[in-house]
Structures are given as structure tokens and as C-alpha cells.
Simulated assay, not measured.
Amino acid sequence: MLQDYEITNLTNLKPNKWMDRLMVVIEFILVLFLIQSALMLFTGQAGQEDEIRFRILSHSNAPADQKLKEEIRHAIEPMINQAISRAESKAEIVDNLKAIEATVLATAKSMADGQDVSFERTAALFPPKRSGLVITPQAPYDAYILTIGSGRGDNWWCSLFPRVCFPDKDVDKKEDEKVTFFIWEWIKSLFD
């Protein structure tokens, strides 16, 4: 004969609060991963490989060398922006930039007070950069490198797009604000 088993009514079981809270946190983290994956798909890294970046290396970190680097950047920036704005494809951008290489080099040499200046297109290693929701990984990118003197000073870099190109103007204002993370505060409140 078969033994009789007692059937437990599942509605009478007391829920474990810790387990419920843990499941909520795990589900929330999974949703965040899904959102991040979707954002990466739609904002994606597409086109990052097609960008042409620019880097200016100063002779040293001395204030005079850094100032010279900034002056040269201000002088050549309109030429580069004009060459880029007139193009509709990467091939046209490359052709337009190739056409102004001599002018950019001559302008930089005239401002460099006799220092050696070189301007070449090469694959250059760029550090990671975040712009909005897009994070550009550290990797070698197609770039024009303008080197003043020994090129051992801090560098300045940019890509074709102004949001990635230039630092945010409001960075100094944001440093004064205390940063709190809503998600972290919410998770802490679940376990209090």
C-alpha cells in the first residue's frame, strides 16, 4: 500500500523577507544589464572605427609649451573643421585632410619658434573616453599626430565629433555638487 503524504497549502507559508528583497535586487540588476545592452546596441560603437582623430603633443609640460600647443590648436582647428564639414564620407574627409596637411604643418611651424614640428597620419593609442552614453575603449585609432619639439608634454586629442572632441565646459561646476546614486541608496534602504 502507498503511504499517504500531507499536502501543504502554499498560501499558508510565510514569505522570507530577506529572500524576497534579494530577489528584487537581482531582478533589478538583470534589468539594468538588459538596458545597458540595448543602449550599446542602439548607440553602439558603430562608426567609432571610422573616426579620424587628432592629437597635439607639446614639447613639455612647461606652461609656455602648453600655451604654444593651445595657440597652435586654435589656429589649425578652423582649417580641420572646415575640411571635415565639407565632406560627406570618410573618403572625402581623408582627401580634404590630405589637401590641408601642408597648410597645417606650415601654420604650426610658423608658430613653433624654430622647434621641430611634424604632422603625420598613423594608428595612435588613445585612452578610454566617455561621451554621454557611449564609452570609447582604449585602442589604436586612425589619427593625425602633430608633434611639437620632443612631444613629451601632455597631449590634447579629439575625434571628428565636437562632443567627443572638446571637454565639457561645466565640469568645474559639477565638482562642487555631492554625488549620490539613487540605485545604491534604494538598495541600502531595502536592507535597513
Score class of each variant (00 low, 15 high):
Thr11Lys: 07
Asp172Pro: 13
Arg53Gly: 09
Arg152Val: 07
Asn16Asp: 11
Ile7Gly: 09
Phe28Gly: 11
Ala46Ser: 12
Met23Gln: 15
Cys165Ile: 01
Phe119Thr: 09
Val104Ala: 02
Leu34Pro: 15
Asp20Trp: 06
Trp157Ile: 15
Tyr144Asn: 12
Gln82Trp: 02
Asp20Gln: 13
His74Lys: 14
Leu41His: 10
Leu13Met: 05
Ile56Pro: 11
Leu146Phe: 04
Asp4Phe: 04
Ser150Asp: 13
Pro137Arg: 03
Leu57Gln: 15
Glu70Met: 03
Lys188Ser: 03
Asp192Val: 06
Glu88Phe: 00
Ser58Asp: 04
Arg152His: 08
Gln66Phe: 00
Asp65Gly: 00
Ser118Thr: 07
Asn12Ala: 05
Met79Asn: 12
Met19Asp: 14
Val134Glu: 09
Val171Phe: 05
Pro140Arg: 08
Gln36Asp: 13
Ser131Gln: 09
Asn61Val: 07
Asp176Lys: 14
Asn81Val: 11
Asn61Phe: 06
Ile93Lys: 03
Gln3Tyr: 03
Ser110Gly: 01
Val171Ile: 06
Val171Ala: 13
Trp184Met: 13
Pro127Thr: 14
Thr180Arg: 15
Asp192Pro: 15
Pro140Gly: 11
Glu49Arg: 10
Tyr144Ala: 04
Ala106Thr: 09
Phe191Met: 05
Thr136Pro: 11
Trp156Gly: 11
Pro128Phe: 00
Asp116His: 06
Gly153Met: 02
Arg55Ser: 07
Met40Tyr: 07
Val104Thr: 00
Trp184Ile: 11
Asn9Gln: 10
Glu177Pro: 14
Ala83Leu: 05
Val171Tyr: 10
